[in-house]
Design a binder for these strands. Structure first.
Length: 193
DNA sequence: CTAATGATGAACT
DNA sequence: GTTCATCATTAGG
């Protein structure tokens, strides 16, 4: 089911939780890949861990666009990560998508990732970017109805949502702004509460 | 099983 | 020069 732009205009923490259970879809010339979002992290404008903390730069500028667009950034010299921009235009907040449970196009993902274990395809931010074929060219694109998009599940049911400190950061580490579906098999890390 | 390490580049001090 | 929202591989127990 199509998602609305208002979904992304909520507070970033709420969007991070609401994205759990939603479906990430990418229609490529080679076929469709999709999966259920099972792990996210919220990055706020006044958050020392956020790329937007020190204001707008060339790299983080998509974070200051309208809610519902993609922010894809290059990191550690070899990886890309995928975020969904939230809140109002000009604020600079986003949700990092950290893990996805693969649904469609699993063979395609295995080829791109060069691994065979389905649980190891999308359980990390740079992994899912590679598995889905997301590229820096999609930086700033709308995620509402394009080839790369997010859809609401037909029926979300009641999810057990857990929260923890975010992964791989030092500044702002005290904030519990990582959200995940409790007990899910496809998380990037399991031993955090 | 867990821990250490190297790859590699943009942004910042 | 150092840091960084990472991952695959290797070394160790």
């Amino acid at each position: 089911m199509k998602i609305s732009r208002n979904f992304f205009k909520n507070t970033t923490i709420e969007v991070a939780k609401n994205l759990l259970g939603c479906v990430l879809i990418h229609e490529t010339p080679h076929g469709k890949v999709s999966g259920v979002i099972v792990e996210t992290e919220a990055y706020l404008h006044n958050d020392p861990a956020s790329h937007s903390f020190n204001g707008q730069t060339k790299r983080n500028s998509p974070m200051f666009l309208d809610a519902g667009v993609a922010y894809v950034y290059f990191t550690y010299g070899m990886h890309f990560c995928f975020n969904v921009v939230t809140n109002k235009k000009g604020i600079g907040e986003a949700v990092l998508v950290r893990s996805v449970k693969p649904l469609e196009g699993i063979e395609r993902m295995k080829k791109r990732r060069r691994v065979s274990d389905a649980k190891n395809l999308c359980n990390g931010p740079a992994k899912l970017v590679e598995a889905f074929g997301i590229t820096k060219e999609m930086n700033g694109d709308s995620l509402i109805s394009g080839k790369l998009r997010i859809e609401l599940p037909r029926e979300k049911g009641k999810l057990k949502i857990g929260s923890s400190r975010r992964i791989g950061i030092t500044r702002g580490a005290e904030f519990k702004r990582r959200f995940f579906i409790k007990g899910n098999e496809y998380l990037s890390t399991k031993n955090l509460v």
